[in-house]
């Protein structure tokens, strides 16, 4: 693929705006899905999954 220059990049802001809204809507949907998951699974189970995310950012300490 030809290497593009930054000044040649065309941006459709209307399309980008739609993408932004859709992305945010998906995030809210995920929050609802995850809240349902938490309410229907044991604390140990959901927290094990959540910890994969948190512990990847915060290594074991002290």
């Amino acid at each position: 693929m030809v290497k593009m220059k930054a000044e040649d990049v065309k941006v459709d802001l209307e399309e980008m705006k739609k993408f932004k809204v859709e992305n945010a809507r998906e995030r809210l949907k995920f929050i609802d899905f995850w809240a349902d998951y938490i309410k229907t699974h044991s604390d140990k189970e959901w927290s094990r999954q959540q910890n994969m995310l948190i512990d990847s950012q915060i290594p074991e300490n002290l």
Partner: peptide
């Protein structure tokens, strides 16, 4: 599943502690 007792102002949470929880 977590249990919330509003009258006692108490929540029982059986979660596995994350590194962040341990720090806190």
């Amino acid at each position: 599943m977590m249990e919330y007792y509003p009258d006692k102002k108490e929540i029982i949470l059986d979660r596995e502690l994350s590194n962040l929880d341990r720090l806190v």
